[in-house]
Design a protein around this nucleic acid. Structure first.
Length: 674
DNA sequence: CCGCGGAGTGTTTTT
DNA sequence: CACTCCGCGG
């Protein structure tokens, strides 16, 4: 039996030992936050609290899985703890109470793309695009409406702040929001925001709330600094009956402001729960003192003063972080790839190294270089597997089986049929009464078009959907039926169909593991699996696991021995869109802080002079968060890499379409004299 | 009315 | 580059 006091420092032990009542844990980077949650779960269970009455809400499913699997190693009962993201918890709970709420029993969760599509249809039906051609586009409309919900603001307030050009359209956009809400309800569609809205609504009913909070007697929320108003309300409602709520977070690591996260949540927690115990964890177990010195200097430079100073628990000060400058993205990629190899040869496994960046596109030259050198890697963040066209196409066929009212998926699959475009799809859709059952739709609505030129295509779809929706077959078989039908269309639609077919085969393997089609579809939207790799397989030995490439956002809460942060130039980090807004710059600054606090031993910061992409301006100045004396003093080597190149190499560059400067940057420089 | 090709536009971070 | 929008030929 593990003695908690042997494993924890006094502050951690205090947090872990609390059984009842509200607790706020302010946990600096690397201060053992994960450890606190892990042992607190264990401690609760040792006090004979039923594991199933503990609820652990985290930001990613991966995070909750990680914490629970560690706790489970100490005590197998920990496996029964309920956990997940706010969105997945909302889905699960709403599913259970949907009838009580007066909604359909089964519903589909739609992603942002589909949400945009739905909004466009609503706006079009209201004639909003006819009157004014300057009316915002669907993605902007979606962002505005979602902003209202996640930031708890009126349409006019969002417009004023973010889209001043569109202020005149406030009344129309408000109407659109109502129309869109009705559209989704009629068709059993929930977008990400609806999951939270309706969960909150559910919890506002006293009887249901009592029931749910009796079920979850102990609530824990990780990364509380990144919750928005709606999520904080949900957490508080859950704790309403018993006040047994522990929230853990670090205001200096708040990086989801764009999604409505508000530091007021974590700051206001003691006001919301008057008896709340506040525990601060400041001792850092992760990084060497040299890295922490840098991190502390970063904190010092922030406008918002975070009362924090990380102290290393480790003895040696370690290597100073390095700052590297490169002429172009290719030099940078080459250098990093060879350094990674070098470190691996010195015994740092690839899985103990990571490369972090602000935006996914920054990593593309590096990905090419890694592939060239046969260094295996995994990419987190950026484009999602389930968002690719072929995956969405295939899933749409399954979605209409699961929810025949899903107009968006119907339109998608109808338009795949040769000869059917938007107009015809709409017409066929009109024949599909939104109250109809799948069998009726297939039997009645489709046969009307037998004589049309696309009748044969429709017929094939009909029989495919019939076999995919047959009774008493497994999810894998349904998937297979849809895939058989889709393959010819896939080949027709994409030149690179064989790669895409591979993806779909992988997907089929995943589908086979599910008992419920609805759950499969929900998981894909709410907790997207990574491309190809479902999870880190514990069977794979450490030295064969791949390198991690990740956005800084997706790297939150994780750590590695050795971390590279690339693209540290103005306009990349901080991103160009943030440059004229002080609070957004602050968030970029915190993002930089998150990045530098990931490594245990080695940190390499780098930038290249030319970020050339069509349509994007050039960024040549070093990131402002580094460009200050107290930061520079913490960095080593500041070497400027301008490797000698010979004529052959210049030839090679020209052949590969590379150049030192883009046309645009040449022009900028030339005109800079005037 | 479909679907193709060309022009034009705007590029973040995540559930 | 990737995506949308527009105009034209079939």
């Amino acid at each position: 039996m593990i003695e908690l006091k042997d494993k924890l420092n006094p502050a951690q032990l205090e947090a872990v030992s609390v059984i009842d009542g509200p607790v706020l844990v302010i946990a600096g980077a690397g201060s053992g936050k994960t450890r606190v949650i892990e042992y607190r779960v264990l401690n609760l269970i040792r006090h004979n609290i039923a594991p199933s009455s503990i609820l652990l809400l985290t930001f990613t499913r991966e995070a909750s899985r990680r914490m629970l699997s560690r706790a489970t190693q100490h005590d197998s009962r920990c496996e029964l703890v309920d956990g997940g993201t706010f969105h997945s918890f909302a889905y699960k709970t709403l599913k259970k109470y949907s009838r009580a709420m007066g909604m359909a029993e089964s519903f589909s969760v739609i992603d942002e793309n589909d949400a945009g599509e739905a909004i466009q249809r609503c706006a079009a039906s209201m004639g909003l695009f006819d009157k004014e051609k300057r009316f915002p586009k669907k993605d902007t409309l979606r962002a505005i409406l979602s902003g209202c919900i996640n930031r708890n603001l009126q349409v006019a307030a969002i417009l004023e702040k973010e889209y001043p050009d569109f202020i005149v359209y406030a009344p129309e956009i408000e109407q659109l929001g109502k129309k869109y809400a009705a559209y989704k309800l009629e068709r059993n569609l929930f977008d990400y925001d609806d999951l939270l809205i309706y969960l909150k609504l559910l919890l506002e009913n006293p009887r249901i709330r009592q029931r749910i909070s009796a079920r979850y007697r102990y609530v824990m929320v990780d990364e509380y600094q990144d919750t928005n108003k709606l999520q904080a309300d949900i957490a508080c409602l859950l704790a309403h009956g018993h006040n047994n709520i522990m929230v853990v977070g670090d205001d200096a690591q708040s990086i989801y402001g764009f999604r409505g996260a508000s530091h007021e949540n974590i700051m206001g927690f003691p006001t919301r729960f008057k008896e709340c115990k506040i525990i601060k964890l400041e001792e850092n177990y992760r990084s060497s003192q040299s890295i922490l010195d840098l991190a502390n200097s970063v904190l010092e430079n922030m406008r918002n003063k975070y009362s924090k100073c990380l102290v290393s628990a480790r003895k040696s000060s370690g290597d100073k972080p390095e700052m590297l400058f490169f002429n172009n993205a290719y030099n940078e990629a080459e250098w990093i790839a060879s350094k990674i190899k070098e470190l691996r040869d010195e015994g740092v496994h690839l899985c103990e190294q990571a490369v972090l960046f602000r935006s996914a596109y920054i990593s593309i030259p590096l990905q090419a270089e890694l592939s060239k050198r046969n260094i295996p890697y995994r990419v987190f963040g950026g484009l999602k597997f389930y968002e690719t066209a072929h995956v969405k196409d295939l899933l749409a066929h399954l979605r209409v089986i699961s929810n025949p009212k899903d107009e968006l998926s119907w339109l998608r699959i109808l338009m795949l049929i040769p000869g059917i475009g938007p107009k015809t799809a709409d017409k066929v859709m009109g024949g599909i009464s939104i109250n109809a059952r799948l069998g009726d739709i297939l039997d009645k609505s489709f046969s009307a078009y037998d004589k049309n030129k696309f009748g044969a295509g429709l017929g094939k779809l009909e029989s495919a959907l019939k076999s995919a929706s047959a009774k008493d077959i497994g999810v894998g078989e349904r998937f297979g039926a849809a895939l058989d039908y889709y393959i010819p269309l896939l080949k027709e639609k994409f030149d690179d169909w064989s790669l895409r077919l591979n993806d779909l085969e992988t997907l089929r393997q995943i589908a086979c593991r599910y008992d419920s089609l609805e759950q499969l579809l929900a998981d894909f939207t709410i907790e997207s699996p990574e491309a190809g790799v479902s999870r880190v397989d514990p069977g794979v030995p450490e030295d064969e696991r791949p390198l991690t490439l990740s956005t800084i956002h997706s790297a939150k809460g994780l750590e590695w021995d050795c971390v590279f942060v690339l693209g540290l130039a103005e306009g990349v980090l901080p991103v160009s869109f943030a440059l004229d807004d002080e609070s957004e710059i602050e968030e970029e600054h915190r993002l930089f802080y998150v990045a530098v606090t990931r490594p245990r031993n080695n940190l390499f910061l780098s930038l290249h002079h030319e970020a050339s992409r069509p349509g994007i301006s050039q960024f040549n100045r070093i990131c402002r968060f580094i460009d200050s004396p107290n930061i520079m003093a913490r960095l080593n080597n500041q070497a400027i890499f301008e490797p000698d190149i010979d004529d052959d190499e210049i030839e090679e560059w020209a052949g590969a379409g590379r150049s030192l400067y883009s046309k645009k940057s040449l022009l900028e420089r030339a005109s800079g004299y005037f």
